[in-house]
Amino acid sequence: MSVDKQTVAKIANLARIEVSEDELENTMGELNNIIDWIEQLSEVNTDGVAAMTSVVAADLPRREDKVTDGGYRDEVLKNAPVAEHGFFAVPKVLE
């Protein structure tokens, strides 16, 4: 399998990374080199092999469902590029 320019543009949109028309060609070439190379996994017989979900066998620990943390809005907002009235501020979403 290999990707064409249209697919690269689609992936870039899904990943929310702007890739200009000029860069598409080059990016396509780089991605296809990597995709060709990872393609070699298709020669491995994995019939009946379970997919890895956890490298260390362990049960997910449980805890009581109660709030143990929080209550520091100002600290959270301190790193925001733009914050107003105690909220993160973003460009208009709805017209």
Partner: peptide, 8 residues
């Protein structure tokens, strides 16, 4: 596929 090979 990769996660299966990872098991192997």
């Amino acid at each position: 596929k990769a996660q299966r090979v990872r098991t192997l």
